[in-house]
Amino acid sequence: MTFTRLAAAAVMAAALAMPALAQDKKVIGVSIPAATHGWAGGMNFHAQEAINRLKTVYPQLEFVLATASDPAKQVNDIEDMVATRKINALVVLPFESEPLTSPVKAVADSGAWVTVVDRGLAIPGIEDLYVAGDNTGFGRVSGEYMVSAMPNGGKIVALRGIPTTIDNERVAGFEEAIKGSGIEIIDMEHGNWNRDDSFTVMQDFLSKHDKIDAVWASDDDMAIGVLAAIEQSGRKDIQFVLGGAGMKEMIAKVRDNDKMVPADVTYPPSMIATAIELTAVGMTSTAPVSGRFTIGSVLITPENAAEFYYPDSPF
């Protein structure tokens, strides 16, 4: 904890201490939401890791990192970066699409390179590079795993996240993948990507349904609440719980062959590192990096779990 905090401070301090050198160096601004929940915490960690690594690889590059706790602060951050640091490129994970669209467009219009991560802007075509997560694919990979794990079909319950487009796309992808497989979603409620909410929802599902074959928790935080509720009930009919995102505790369970957590599906917070890295390549070489880069959701099984386990990450 202290280490990453120190590292962050060091990055900021270094960035502030060398304005004179900025002339002959290229500056990449990175603007991301603050670590207000698990996934964002992981994303912050990977952003700092990537910046520390790239600073030694490319001494001709400088990085400015700003984390914002709300969209308005993020707009200010970006304006400050343009005004005081004269950034040559901006890597931005928009807090919300609408409010960030025109400030980012202004950066693009000023001639700087713009990389947008995860959430797209409201108007397409502003960014030079779009590094996107694949929510439909996340649902599809989860659904396909369910089908392969339950070849004879079965009754499952599903927990949804906070009602958003992200959640809708995931559920649509999942439903599409299990169509015609004999797997039936007998109940679905919002657990809001929250351990406590998913715990109570799962308790109630267990009261309501006498037989549940499996649970699609759709998120690792929710899977933790679901597992606690199942453990409390003492029920033996639930064969497994499928989470998602790639929290290190859940990946450790997959790696250690936990029977209740046989797999996980990634939606990696490290996609910010991909974006920073590609932007750095674009700034320093002639290799073309513009366009759209979609990070696929990957199924984690005991065989490949070790590759996805980052012991230092907070997520």
Binding site: M1, R5, A34, A35, G38, G42, F45, D221, S313, P314
Partner: peptide
């Protein structure tokens, strides 16, 4: 609490 947990979860 966010700071103590470094943005993640204290377990």
């Amino acid at each position: 609490v966010t700071w103590l947990a470094d943005g993640g979860t204290l377990s």
